[in-house]
Amino acid sequence: MPDQKLTAAITAVGGYVPEYRLTNQELESIVETSDEWIVTRTGIKERRILKDPEKATSDLAIEAISEVLRKKQLDPKDIECIICCTMTPDMQLTVTAAYIAWKIGAENAWGYDFTAACCGFLYGLTTAASYVESGRYKKVIVVGVDNMSAFVDYQDRNTCVLFGDGGAAVLVEPNTEGLGVIDSKFGTNGYGRQLMHQKAGGSLKPASHATIDAREHYAYMDGKAVFKYAVTCMSESITAVMKKNNLSAADIAWIVPHQANLRIIEAVAKETGMPMDKIMLNIEKYGNTIAGTIPLCLWEWEPRLNKGDNIILVSFGGGFTWGATLLKWAY
Rank of each mutant, 00 (worst) to 15 (best):
C84W: 09
R263Y: 06
A98I: 15
P257I: 02
I279F: 03
T159F: 00
P89G: 11
V95Q: 15
L195H: 14
S34Q: 03
L204T: 13
F227V: 03
P275W: 15
A150C: 09
L305P: 13
K45Q: 11
Q92M: 15
T88P: 05
T239Y: 09
Y123T: 12
G180A: 05
V256P: 04
D3T: 10
V132W: 10
A106T: 02
D222S: 11
I100M: 06
D78P: 06
T321C: 09
H197G: 06
V241H: 14
N261H: 05
E36D: 13
G120Q: 04
L60M: 13
D277T: 13
W254G: 02
S149K: 02
Y286T: 08
A12F: 05
W301Q: 14
E284T: 11
V140W: 12
R193W: 09
P303C: 03
K71R: 15
R136C: 07
T293E: 02
D251T: 00
L247P: 01
V152L: 03
D251F: 03
T7I: 07
E54V: 03
N310A: 12
E266W: 06
M221T: 10
E26M: 12
F320P: 00
I79W: 05
A249C: 10
T42W: 01
G192H: 12
D153N: 11
F186D: 06
L179V: 04
K270P: 07
D153S: 08
E271D: 13
L60T: 02
Y112T: 13
E266N: 14
K51R: 10
D113A: 11
D113I: 08
A214S: 13
K243H: 14
L125I: 12
K228G: 06
E284F: 10
S203R: 12
Y191H: 08
E28W: 01
E67Y: 03
G202P: 02
G318D: 07
A230N: 08
E284G: 07
T86I: 03
V241G: 13
Y123R: 15
Q25K: 12
A106Q: 00
C84M: 14
Y16D: 05
V17H: 04
L305M: 15
H197P: 07
I255Q: 02
W322N: 07
T232S: 07
T11V: 11
G111F: 07
D75P: 07
G323S: 05
G323V: 05
I255E: 00
G135Y: 14
D251I: 01
I264E: 08
I65T: 01
I79E: 06
Y218F: 15
D113H: 10
E216L: 14
A267S: 14
H217S: 14
G15F: 07
G124H: 08
D35Y: 00
T127M: 14
Y20H: 02
P2M: 11
K244R: 15
E46D: 08
W102L: 08
